[in-house]
Write a protein that binds this DNA or RNA. Sequence first.
DNA 1: TGCTTATGAATGATTATGATTGATTTTGGA
DNA 2: TCCAAAATCAATCATAATCATTCATAAGCA
Lengths: 250, 250
Amino acid sequence: MLTNERHEFILNLLEQKQTIKIQDIVDLTEASESTIRRDLTVLENRNQLERVFGGAVLPGRNLSEPTIKDKSARNLEEKDSIAKLAASLVQDGDSVYLDAGTTTFQMIRYLRDKNIVAVTNGLTLVEELNEHGITVYLTGGLLKPRTGAFIGAQTIQSLKNYRFDVCFLGVNGFHPEMGYTTPDPEEAAVKRLASSLASESYVLADHSKADKISFAKIMELGDAVLITDSISTELRETLEKKTTVKVGTR
Amino acid sequence: MLTNERHEFILNLLEQKQTIKIQDIVDLTEASESTIRRDLTVLENRNQLERVFGGAVLPGRNLSEPTIKDKSARNLEEKDSIAKLAASLVQDGDSVYLDAGTTTFQMIRYLRDKNIVAVTNGLTLVEELNEHGITVYLTGGLLKPRTGAFIGAQTIQSLKNYRFDVCFLGVNGFHPEMGYTTPDPEEAAVKRLASSLASESYVLADHSKADKISFAKIMELGDAVLITDSISTELRETLEKKTTVKVGTR
DNA sequence: TGCTTATGAATGATTATGATTGATTTTGGA
DNA sequence: TCCAAAATCAATCATAATCATTCATAAGCA
């Protein structure tokens, strides 16, 4: 069976059953598990399905996905040290852009006593900033379900009305050659623009993002200062050839 | 059964029965008690249900936010009848503007199965729309603390990018001569603009708003259809000389 | 031939699961 | 009210399933 055929087959099956298990596909196609996994990866990158542990579901119809109110956070301690360091870079009177994301969210509690104006495209961040008494503007635009990030043309247009002293971005991967990347091209566009509107740009990414490459490129490594936590000395040296690296400590 | 499937299964079951016992889920899913417990924990962390001793219940939506709660607790039944009537005026395929406010908030649960695109300037409404799976755009702009409404130049500018089939506004007062009014001129400007961008405008206001006049004028009575609940026959006749009046029933 | 791409198998890591334990909460009777 | 039994709970552990990654081979193509 040709690769394309198999892809079609998987999508049809998924359409019928709404949910499929990897083992079922393996049995039906007589391809190896590895191959099916690869298939699912490319189909997921095309947004034609969403992978879940053990199989895949139709995109967007995954009702039991984490919602934006999800309290559980991974690598919380690491993220906190990064957030604390990042927040210390904010001066009184600054206009600050905070990207949607959990790490930037963590920053907010360290910003509470600063006299700043914040702009964000993150729904959860707006609330948190508001609760901490920080003046906040939201970009507006199309809300990307579940992640709570506003994206799209409207967001881009709104952003252009602002200039920032500092800008803090989250990413899904950073890599010496490929720079900063994230899965969604629309989000990447927003991040790229925000960075270009700021005097200083910082990328917040814990060590789990090191050497990772996602689908959509945001910008080169040198376009922002990287704030991270414990990474190997070797990697750090490689990175520092391209950009400034700051490391948070607990 | 995939983990994901089981989560959906539990949520569906809960939706139907309002209350579920862990043992029932165990019997139905043929997973172990431990697994189901774990499921419930993650679903609770996502605010998709609340655990109680022995099982789980639907999350108390209105119980969580004290500030919002106070407002929405008042005249809740009246507002609900208004919201229900208003929601029935929305057609599949419509683009809908929902003003920030508690009455418009109530509308959302009656919109859940409609295939619409929504635009709003209300922070709480964005979340609720999102949770009900409705595509939602937010205007963006400056967040007005406490009320959760976005206002200002940015909001105005964003709004101009849209056209609406229907538009639903909340007000603080309606009066035969003075029209619709609200305390904040900035909010009034947003409401006025939204209305002018819509083919059909509706104002949602329970009887406690009757004959009230606030500081900032939004527009004339005749510029929108008024949806309200029990008002005196006398008042209704006066109002109907100026505009269409619809009255919600419980 | 040389080059790229697709495949399958093997690996070690990660995640999900079920059973067990002892603690906590509820229930129902004295 | 109080107490004890029953039910439910969180925490832990070992096991099983699933995962990403790597490597070697096979297939397609100039």
